[in-house]
Design a protein around this nucleic acid. Structure first.
Lengths: 289, 289
DNA sequence: GCCTCTGTATAAGTTAAATCTATAGGGTGG
DNA sequence: CCACCCTATAGATTTAACTTATACAGAGGC
């Protein structure tokens, strides 16, 4: 039994004549005739009686019609679902990410991403970067975002790196500089991330290389906290320019030299092939970082 | 999308390798390979990644698999239903019949007929022969059985005619005759059907032709009542040998000459084509009358 | 009664899917 | 490094579904 036979049968049952069915299916009348003849032969059912040059469905045809319609609907649904999967309207996107990005960036991006894909199921979970890395190995997530460096490297990892910028209050004397260096910040009160953070280490090396005195007056866990403190006039600081954007409205951002690299990684599943949706979202994410 | 593609896909998803799927479907490995390639191309979905010479289903394939299985089940059900219709295991058989046959013969025959066709829905309704004839025109019944003659003839009618037999009590003097004629029954107490019945008229003509005296001591509506009366020693009578069988156990049946014809008609739908089941049951009935 | 209209069936040829056999090529493990 | 297992490709074959052309059959108008 072939789908085309059922389609011809259905159209013929609904519209009564082969000529009309052929028109509706945009094929010739003999095509319907032989397809129906095949269906009758293969099912062993006499579906129509030729009576006065016209067709009349038999009671068997009416019984068969009920099932044929169900089967066609199921097949047509399969086609629809294939299209939904292809266009990302069906499926799920489970993402594990570390706190800053998961709170400040992902909700907006995922909402935008899902807006064009009604039917998509979203899931987002927030953990520290190392936990995120471990969650990824449990195969429960389609994509993870972690800060670098990780304890051990992963294949299927894409590093996104960009340069942090120096933030100063609007009225600060340094606000009109084009580039800020450690020399400009000699002894200036500074809000930094925690000592364990790679950013801290890069800054320490930069100040040391310039022979400047790095006057750390506060250490925070997140960039956002640092932004608030700088806003309050506690000093200057350094931020990643993307994730922290919502918090830097009342501040001035300036390039910092030497470059302080902020590196995060997009992790894709290792065992399994990443889903098309995960790849698309990763691409989307890349464009917005 | 073709059914064969879904079958190949399902087998491949379940069994993991193309070689194994090919074995199970009794086709060659390249056949699976190209069919799957076609399915991937037509759905626009990347269903498998070729990894280390092996296949690995993508997340999209897992989503698609759910729908593919549903569609295949629906198609397979359609095949099963076609077979059930063909073998009479699906469908309905609604019969309208006059009282005697509907009570004495049909229940047993229909039960036997249905025993080999589990799933068949039965319906039987009892009316007088003229009502049965009219019910048939309402298209609600697949088959009707009426006594002849009918007020007006019908196309799609098959007449079944057989000869009535003379019934006498076991100890009756006529019980050892080979054939009984009106001459043998001259003045003998006789149980007949009602005057309006064709049987009555045929008997009257037969006795008149033989110049014998027809001594009607009782008139009944049904053969079965006549049987009971003859059993009780009220006289002799005449019955149809098939429908009355359950009531003639304690009687002797002998051929009667001249032939008294008992005629009934099998009526099939006129507007619509009769169902295969109706034809089969009509055939079955013919063999048992 | 014949002709036209409408609808179905048959014949002959085309295209593409699904199949075959034969073969190449890529990983994995002893 | 070779043997084994699996997949992909090439070229040929079969058949379903389709085409056009045409024959055939019943219904209805004149």
């Amino acid at each position: 039994m072939r789908i085309r036979q059922l389609e011809c049968f259905r159209t013929l049952m609904i519209h009564g004549t082969m000529t009309r069915a052929a028109e509706l299916l945009s094929i010739s009348q003999p095509a319907i005739s032989s397809t129906i003849a095949n269906l009758e032969h293969e099912t062993g059912l006499k579906l129509f009686v030729r009576k006065g040059g016209r067709l009349q469905p038999t009671p068997e045809a009416r019984l068969f019609f009920v099932e044929a319609e169900r089967a066609l609907e199921a097949v047509e649904k399969t086609n629809r679902v294939a299209k939904e999967i292809r266009t990302g309207k069906r499926g799920h996107l489970a993402i594990a990410a570390y706190a800053s990005i998961s709170i400040n960036l992902l909700p907006r991006l995922m909402a935008e991403f899902a807006k064009e894909r009604p039917g998509l199921e979203l899931k987002i979970i927030t953990r520290n970067s190392q936990s995120v890395r471990e969650l990824m190995t449990t195969q429960q997530f389609d994509l993870a975002i972690a800060e670098l460096p990780l304890d051990y490297p992963t294949s299927n990892m894409e590093v996104i790196s960009y340069e942090c910028q120096c933030m100063v209050p609007i009225s600060h004397p340094l606000a009109d500089r084009d580039v800020i260096t450690p020399a400009d910040l000699d002894g200036v009160p500074f809000v930094s991330l925690f000592k364990g953070d790679p950013i801290y280490q890069q800054l320490a090396m930069a100040f040391s290389a310039y022979g400047s005195s790095w006057n750390v007056v506060a250490e925070t866990e997140f960039f956002s906290t640092a932004c608030e403190l700088v806003c309050s006039g506690m000093g200057v600081g350094i931020v990643d320019p993307v994730v922290s954007r919502p918090f830097t409205g009342n501040l001035v951002l300036k390039p910092f030299s030497p470059a302080i690299k902020y590196e995060i990684a997009l992790l894709l599943p290792t065992q399994e092939e990443p889903s098309q949706l995960a790849r698309e979202f990763a691409h989307y994410l890349r464009q917005h970082l």
